[in-house]
């Protein structure tokens, strides 16, 4: 896991699988996921192997997650917002019925 060097002067709350965690305005969601104690990863749609943020610049698509109910969001390109929810994306994506 990663750790922050500083205590954020300002903080927002992001819900990771329902659990509230502290995030700092200006950082992206993938950074928050990488700070979680249990490593954050998703099973791929192809073989179900595990993936986690890798490139952090939007070119690898390994950091996909469900953000505020919308799947296939690149978390490394998504700035945090107060109250944002993030959930694991499981293999192939389900569309809302």
């Amino acid at each position: 896991m990663f750790r922050k060097l500083h205590e954020p002067a300002e903080a927002v709350t992001v819900y990771v699988e329902g659990k509230p965690v502290v995030a700092e305005p200006g950082e992206n969601l993938a950074a928050v996921l990488l700070r979680q104690e249990a490593i954050w990863s998703r099973p791929t749609p192809v073989k179900g192997s595990r993936r986690a943020p890798y490139c952090m610049i939007g070119v690898c698509f390994d950091c996909l997650a469900r953000v505020d109910g919308v799947a296939s969001v690149q978390t490394c390109m998504m700035p945090v917002r107060d109250g944002m929810t993030v959930e694991h994306q499981q293999r192939r994506r389900c569309l809302p019925s």
């Binding site: 749609p45 192809v46 296939s72 192939r92 994506r93 389900c94 569309l95």
Partner: peptide, 11 residues
């Protein structure tokens, strides 16, 4: 022209 989406659960 053809479009193709990401992989989805069977639909």
């Amino acid at each position: 022209q053809i479009l193709v989406t990401e992989r989805l659960e069977p639909l």
